[in-house]
Write a protein that binds this DNA or RNA. Structure first.
Length: 471
RNA sequence: GGCCUGGUGGCGGAGUGGUGACGCAGCGGACUGCAAAUCCGCGCACCCGAGUUCGAUUCUCGGCCAGGCCUCCA
């Protein structure tokens, strides 16, 4: 099985063939850092992180170059900075740090590059100049605009017709635009806003040019995969594509376009006006493990909409608990011994990889994760150490590939308890063990009730009691 | 108005032209001093109508419903 990717441009699944297998490149649009991101922003991060992991397996870790940008110049950033009376860098650095911390908590690997827009203004201006020189852009009234009429293929990615767009235009058309669809490459800064010198007058870049310039600066054209949310298809990616192609008089920009579907909230789009904004920041702070969020985000195919609910989180937690339960029992049996996974073996691990290679079918991959869990459970139940080692190695390998199951099982179940709590629990368990040994079940049950009140569930086993924190 | 998705069991969610993935929850049983964990068993989903077919949840057409994009947006 070779990797198949659904390409938004082709509107079908295509076999993935990189330009150069020794240098596979991927770019994903990252956040604008003016506040905490919401959970919807986390979906592309987790989805493309999973793809990143898969590509590294297929082509080798050193061969995959992944860039995810930080947009650190923007109206909303200016507004946030003005509101606090600070430089924009205070805002952007603060929320970039939060972003990196939260995405790491979701199990996302650090991308190869995380370019910031403000560090690439020079490249943006070079690209703008190239566009002007080639007749694809024009300066007007302090602005530089992309001339959509001078690019025949405009609209191809999003399947739009320029005439239709003009006819259905709902925005007020700025007087300096030749065509309503023309978009800003460079614009004058308002007083107090960050400003850069340019051949077209002092100002700042438009949004779309940031990404095309950073892609060229950091990865080089053409890139293999360009990813982002479905909402970015138009106008953002359509415009990026137009710039990237026209700045060079043709050629390829991105070979595969991938777009993840939206998160719904009870059937509604998340927005501030609806007051239904959910943020990883809050979810993580409330004690929900990042892995639970990641499982939830990967529980539907990435192109499908996903309804984000309490129930989804609960089910994700329960499912992970089950897997960690087997891993905990397995660890007790093999006592620290480990085995290398047999990555090329036939069977569930192969099916797991095949599911991911089929356009990142994560629900299908989770099915195989369950099968691996069942296999491990049988081996543990049979007390078969060699089989337990093998099943566990494969389950952990699959888990790593999808960014899950990397926590120590004991920590998974007891992690929510502090040190003081652990000491107290162990003391109570010792007391309870003594009571049980002397058949004083009344005392044993009283201690169980006491532990229950502390949020601890006790599980008696053949080798002694284990425990876990209730949710 | 234009363009585009999707409608699967109590819930989440894959997939397939021909014996109901997988997970969660639930029910019955086993085990257990009691529990938990685990094991065994239990579900007769595929929006509606027409068509194609020996056979459709899966293909085609129509309808209904939901959602997205067309404006900043993951």
């Amino acid at each position: 099985m070779t990797l198949q990717i659904y390409d938004t441009m082709a509107r079908e699944k295509r076999p993935f063939v990189p330009t150069d297998p020794s240098r596979v490149t991927m770019y994903v649009c990252g956040p604008t850092v003016y506040n905490h991101v919401h959970i919807g922003n986390a979906r592309p991060v987790v989805v493309f992180d999973t793809l990143f992991r898969l590509l590294r397996l297929l082509y080798g870790e050193a061969a995959v170059i992944y860039a995810r940008n930080i947009t650190d110049v923007d109206d909303k950033i200016n507004a946030a900075a003005a509101a606090e009376g600070v430089e924009i860098s205070v805002i952007t650095q603060r929320f970039t740090a939060y972003y990196e911390e939260q995405m790491a908590a979701l199990g996302a690997l650090t991308p190869t590059f995380q370019p910031r827009a403000t560090a690439h203004i020079a490249e943006m201006l070079l690209q703008i100049t190239a566009l002007v020189d080639r007749g694809h852009a024009y300066a007007a009234d302090g602005h530089v605009l992309f001339d959509t009429a001078a690019y025949a293929a405009y609209g191809k990615l999003s399947g739009r017709d320029l005439d239709d767009m003009i006819a259905g235009a709902r925005v007020e058309v700025a007087p300096y635009k030749k065509n309503p669809a023309d978009f800003v490459l460079w614009k004058p800064s308002k007083p107090g806003e960050p400003v850069w010198e340019s051949p077209y007058g002092p100002g700042r870049p438009g949004w779309h040019i940031e990404c095309s310039a950073m892609i060229e600066a950091v990865l080089g054209l053409p890139i293999d995969i360009h990813g982002g949310g479905i909402d970015l298809v138009f106008p953002h990616h359509e415009n990026e594509l137009a710039q990237g192609v026209c700045a060079h008089g043709g050629g390829e920009y991105a070979r595969y376009w991938m777009h993840n579907g939206f998160l719904d909230f009870s059937g509604e789009k998340m927005s501030k006006s609806l007051g239904n904004v959910v943020r990883p920041h809050d979810l993580l702070d409330s004690g929900i493990p990042g892995e639970v969020l990641r499982w939830a985000l990967l529980s539907a195919h990435y192109r499908q909409p996903l309804d984000w609910t309490e129930s989804l989180l609960r089910q994700s937690k329960e499912t992970l608990d089950g897997l960690y339960q087997v891993l905990r029992d397995a660890a007790a049996l093999v006592d620290g011994e480990t085995l290398a996974p047999d990555a090329d073996a036939e069977g569930h691990l192969a099916h797991f990889k095949a599911a991911l290679e089929d356009d990142l079918n994560t629900p299908g991959a989770m099915r195989e994760l369950s099968a691996l869990g069942r296999g491990l459970r049988s081996a543990v139940a049979a007390g078969n150490r060699p089989a337990t080692l093998e099943w566990r190695a494969n389950l952990l390998f699959a888990g790593e590939l999808i960014g899950l199951l990397q926590t120590e099982p004991v920590a998974w179940f007891e992690g929510a308890a502090g040190e003081e709590m652990k000491v107290r629990v162990e003391a109570l368990l010792a007391e309870r063990l003594a009571a049980r040994n002397s058949k004083d079940f009344a005392t044993a049950d009283r201690i169980r009730a006491e532990l229950d009140a502390l949020g601890v569930v006790v599980m008696d086993g053949p080798t002694g009691a284990t425990w876990r924190m209730k949710d």
